[in-house]
Amino acid sequence: MRPWVRSAAWSAAIAALLAVVVVVSAAIGPVRIPPETVVKSVLNALAVPAGIETTGGVGPLSVPGVGPLTLPGLDLAFASPFAFPVDAVHQQIVVGVRLPRILLAALVGFALAAAGTVMQGFFRNPMADPSIIGVSSGAAVGAVAFIVFPVALSTTVALPVVGPVEVALSRGAGTSLFAFVGALAAAFGVYAIATRGGRTPVATLLLAGVAVQTFLGAVVSYLQLQAGESLRQIVAWLMGHLSGAAWSEVAITAVVVPPLFAVLLAYARDLNVLLLGEEEARGLGIAVERTKRVLLAASALVTAAGVAFAGVIGFVGLIVPHMLRLVVGPDHRVLLPTAALFGGTFLVAADTVARSAAAEYPVGIITAAVGAPFFVYLLVTREVSEL
């Protein structure tokens, strides 16, 4: 069977599993909701464009030579094609509370598993995961620094026609922004340290990543000593969290992650060739240095997008690629999409367990509790070269 046919078949199967897990997860909580009600609530929330409506308009605006002028405003009108009879409370719980958290978990797990798959192939190392290039440590420094030393993120922007508009970010949005910037700064810092004369040796990149992670870990420890009353919030962020997820966070993550994943998937064949070694890849016509730059940049960005809102969640990018490699094989044209989809499924399931406990746990505790024993099992039952 051709690789892309196998990839489509496995991806469809795992996507169906993900859909089932999402429905079951949305049904579980302090208020139990039947799965069929969950499906009806989601369908009721779907909306399609139904026409254009005229609003009150913008203005009055002072136009030289014309005088006060009010411009008509146009808005798209949306309507739902479904109208299932669902209790309003259940509808609000599913769509307003649980679904944003579940979809954010799916996107974050998708991103981390995709980046972990690429990093293990890139470094030809079964212990590699997205944090190996400093992304997680950089995000931790950015987020913790903002929590300890918050700054006002507001400014006034002058827009044509509309005029001055006040733009401000909340504390949570500021933490996510600083985490994203810190993640990218660390990743590209590691790349700059390891690159000499336009070439980036994999061994040097790995060692640079270890050195930067160690240094940033020390910075995080120092910031924790300065945290005072913010220490609890810092610990919760460092353990990974998905509580309080909003649709705006889901939308931002959904805009960033799929295009970057498409870039990684486009280089899946090149990644297969890189497994043979850089010299062999050059002999087969692969632009090795350009491929490495693209894979590193896309992996760093997709990981940063994941950890910015969810904090540091371990083991997803390490364990999930191993699990799927045992099932679908090492061909990245099949492994990459299936591992990414299963990463989303795994994190949704882990977060469901985390929020179903008597006292809600950070999701990172659940992923570590599941991932570490599984990884030990792999080490005991298989040779390292087989992983």
Rank of each mutant, 00 (worst) to 15 (best):
M1P: 05
A8K: 05
L18H: 05
V21A: 15
V22Q: 06
A26T: 01
P30G: 15
I33R: 08
P35Y: 12
T37P: 00
V39Q: 05
V39D: 05
S41P: 02
L43A: 12
P49F: 13
G51L: 10
E53I: 05
G56K: 09
V58N: 00
P60L: 13
L61A: 01
P64S: 08
V66L: 14
P72N: 08
L74V: 11
L76R: 05
A77M: 12
P81E: 10
P85H: 12
V86E: 04
D87W: 11
A88F: 09
Q91F: 15
V94Y: 09
R98Q: 08
F110M: 13
F110N: 01
F110D: 02
A111E: 06
A113W: 08
A113E: 06
T117N: 11
M119E: 04
Q120S: 04
G121T: 02
F123Q: 01
N125S: 07
M127C: 00
S131H: 14
S136M: 10
V141C: 10
G142A: 12
F149A: 13
V151H: 05
V151I: 14
P164E: 14
T175G: 01
S176M: 08
L177K: 03
F178Y: 13
G182L: 10
L184W: 05
G189F: 12
A194P: 02
T200Y: 12
P201G: 09
V202D: 04
L207Q: 04
V210Y: 09
V212G: 03
T214K: 02
T214D: 00
L216M: 12
Y222E: 01
L223H: 06
L225Q: 07
Q226A: 14
Q226P: 00
E229F: 11
A236E: 07
L238C: 01
H241T: 13
H241A: 15
L242F: 13
L242E: 04
S248F: 06
V250F: 10
I252R: 10
T253M: 13
V255P: 00
L265D: 01
A268F: 09
R269K: 14
L271V: 02
L274Q: 03
R282M: 12
L284M: 14
I286V: 15
A287R: 15
E289C: 06
T291M: 12
V294M: 06
V294W: 09
A298N: 05
A298Y: 09
G306P: 03
G306R: 06
V307F: 09
A308H: 04
A308N: 02
V312H: 00
V312G: 00
V316P: 03
V316M: 09
P321L: 11
P321E: 10
P330S: 15
P337Q: 11
P337N: 11
P337W: 12
A339L: 07
A339Y: 08
G343I: 07
T345I: 07
V348M: 10
A350P: 02
T352G: 13
A359I: 14
P362N: 07
V363T: 03
G364V: 05
G364H: 07
T367N: 06
A369K: 02
P373N: 09
F374R: 00
F375G: 03
L379V: 03
L379M: 12
L379D: 04
L379K: 06
T381D: 01
R382H: 15
E383S: 14
V384I: 14
V384S: 07
S385Y: 15
E386T: 02
L387V: 02
